[in-house]
Design a protein around this nucleic acid. Structure first.
Length: 124
RNA sequence: AGGCAGGCCGAGAUGAUCGCGGGCAUCAGAUGGGUAACACCCGAUGCAUGAGGAAAGUCCGGGCUCCACAGGACAAGGGUGCCGGAUAACGUCCGGUGAAGGCGACUUUAAGGAAAGUGCAACAGAAAAGAAAACCGCCCGCCGUUCUUCGGAGCGGAAGGUAAGGAUGAAAAGGCGAGGUAAGAGCUCACCGGCGGCAUGGAGACAUGCCGGCCUUGUAAACCCCACCCGGAGCAACGUCGUGGAAUGGCAUAACCGCUGUCCGCGGGCCAUGAGGAGACGGCUGGAAUGCUGUGGCAACACAGCAUCUGGAUAGAUGAUCAUCAUAUACAGAACCCGGCUUACCGACCUUGCCUGGCG
């Protein structure tokens, strides 16, 4: 198990355009199963890693709020990381909400979304 | 009791479990990357450490980097504008002067020049910028007329005098009082204001006093004039490396393929070269640094000594859960770095500070 941040803009758009998604009450999850032999700048991307991105709309929250939301999502992801298969690109996006949800709400929503996409081997 | 001024702090604190960034130390290397081999990267463990007073707005001033000019002056454009000081510098800060406000402690200040010139001053008003103007009013004399107590009085008229009063206006040509006069007027005088000169004090802005002629509207946040300052762009700056592809040169061209058949030639191969897109690394944090003490200074600040090392991420590190403390937690996240300004903010604390009023 190894998770690595998703970096480049074109990789994000690939996940949005060609991947599957699931929307919950607080989060939207996009996932994309990388085909074998995919390269970035002629360097092959290892098959045994999962790449993750966390997004918050710049318009809905200030810098502090965005940081907080990202941290909550990252922490939730960390706890269920082991149950997720390799070779996948994931993007978690906070939905447009009035307030930042609590850790519990994000955590549960993340699990249910990933289950719906068939990405969780067994519920934690 | 009310107020004035200044300072200081602010992810609320503590504990437990799990987790993140870079740093240091140790370990593991018959296993990944890397090297000639080490180092190093990657991995594990431990240790300490890890956002702000505004990190924000990006409004000024610098450092740093590249480009331009490599000398000076002027013009254009922009900025600043009482005086002195502080500073690397500033439009900032400190101390003062003048003005305005407040009973006061204090506060505010968009403070150069209106006698270099130009423009503007709506409406109202007779007149709104020149040494002006007579709407009402006031007045001597004159003419007509009425009355008469024969002194004059009233009314009307033409020509004049008058800026004291009324009326207009944001503003009416110094203010106010006395003398003066037919009525008036800086016409004369005292005081006040302004202007000019002189003296004294001060480093200066200015202050005080005396003298003079009797006096010149406001607006420069209208143009403008004067003095001083300013080259441009920014860390996505800039520097180093830079697979492949393309370019140029060299070498090899047996076979095969392409340039529609044939021949020649060229390309596909290998090596080198200087640019260089993506990307990587550096720039990247030890600094006009912070704390304490001392000396100088009213102060801003400067100097000296001692001590300390205090974020450097790169899709972007400070988090999660639980428990306790008191009800509960504002504005808000470094992105090259400093000095300011401005704006946002739940609240906590300090000064044997100062002022006004009440009671004793």
């Amino acid at each position: 198990m190894r998770s690595v941040p998703l970096k480049y803009n074109y990789e994000f758009s690939r996940v949005y355009k060609r991947g599957k998604f699931s929307t919950g009450r607080y989060l939207t999850v996009h996932c994309f199963r990388r085909p074998a032999g995919l390269k970035h700048n002629l360097t092959p991307i290892p098959a045994d890693i999962t790449r993750v991105g966390f997004c918050v709309n710049k318009k809905q929250l200030g810098a502090v709020g965005r940081n907080r939301a990202r941290r909550l999502m990252r922490e939730s992801y960390r706890l269920i990381e082991d149950g997720i298969p390799f070779g996948i690109d994931l993007i978690f996006t906070l939905r447009n909400l009035e307030e930042i949800p609590t850790f519990d709400e994000i955590s549960k929503d993340m699990v249910s979304n990933l289950t719906r996409l068939g990405l969780l081997k067994n519920e934690v």
